[in-house]
Write a protein that binds this DNA or RNA. Structure first.
Lengths: 174, 174
DNA sequence: CCGCGATGCTTCATAGTTGAAATATCTCGC
DNA sequence: GCGAGATATTTCAACTATGAAGCATCGCGG
């Protein structure tokens, strides 16, 4: 409705649509709302991480990936999973090395490759933060019941597939 | 350490679950998916803006706000709408001034305040980009039909409300 | 008027982020 | 083995982003 940028010409019932040059209004509003939700949650998590643990979100995200992979991760894999550039990971890793959360070692089989692992201290620090993090997310999503979460989950699944199929490059399998 | 994974009380094969004090697993997965969708779309838009217009997303976002506000915007308002820090806006504005997309003028009524406006060239450049931008978003969302978009829209609306109500500070009304 | 807290913006140090170029290593066809 | 292209990582310049500190200005109570 209400998208009357001039002439909606339709001759008969058959020809009806396909004449309005869609301005993608609905998609844009949806995208904006999606972005707002993500930004709000991300900002809140970032702030709490900083205030309560003096930690940053990118560091936390990297540790989270490392936590899921028992045997350490190759830098390229980290880059793919976090969906950030390789150069970014290098800098991030350097800082986590300094703070003692992780270690870095060259792969024995491929000398190009660097493998990072969490130290016991890193693991402990992450465990503490992760528990709170879960609670924060749980609280932020409190207004949704189980059915709504399922709905969102599957709708976003569809969206994800749609986006992937319309991107230039196929991308990873996260 | 409320939920030691070891303490899963289950009497027999049937009863096994439903005992765990929520670890917010579902919420976390949903959050992750939300984040992935947003990141994918954002990355795609950013790449196309760069490749096709040699422009960046933050600049585009700022112009978009300025485009919606006919009479220019105060910097603080821009900061609130984009949900970024004030210092960030200062830098962004400086670059958009240099490139001639906007102008800046002090408010006549309040000498602390700076008002920015789009130049005609800025408006023209934005119009060109915005049209493509709409098409990109439209294409990325193509896999969703109207009903699914409505569903997403309202579910995200609920999520947004939930998040807002669980943040420390109320925040703005974007 | 005078102060004083609130507000709007800038400055600063630090960090995250990107894309492209450079480097090193690997793999595979030959 | 050799060399060409692919892959993994680092380096680099530019920019985006943050939070805190600093200024200037405003508004208001006295």
């Amino acid at each position: 409705m209400t998208d009357a940028p001039g002439a909606e010409v339709w001759i008969d019932a058959e020809t009806k649509v396909e004449e309005a040059p869609h301005d993608h209004r609905a998609e844009l509003r949806l995208w904006l709302r999606l972005l707002t939700c993500t930004n709000l949650i991300e900002a809140e998590v970032r702030r709490r991480l900083r205030e309560e643990y003096d930690f940053t979100l990118p560091r936390f995200d990297l540790l989270a990936q490392l936590d899921k992979a028992e045997d350490g991760l190759v830098l390229g894999e980290v880059s793919r999973r976090l969906m950030v550039s390789a150069g970014n990971v290098t800098a991030l890793v350097e800082r986590l090395l300094e703070s003692g959360h992780i270690t870095r070692a060259p792969s024995p089989t491929d000398r190009r490759v660097q493998i990072i692992r969490m130290t016991p201290e890193g693991r402990a620090a992450f465990a503490r933060m992760a528990e709170d993090h879960g609670d924060w997310i749980g609280a932020l999503f409190e207004g949704l019941d189980e059915a709504e979460m399922d709905t969102l989950m599957s709708a976003l699944g569809k969206l994800k597939a749609s986006v992937r199929s319309h991107m230039r490059e196929g991308g990873n399998g996260a």
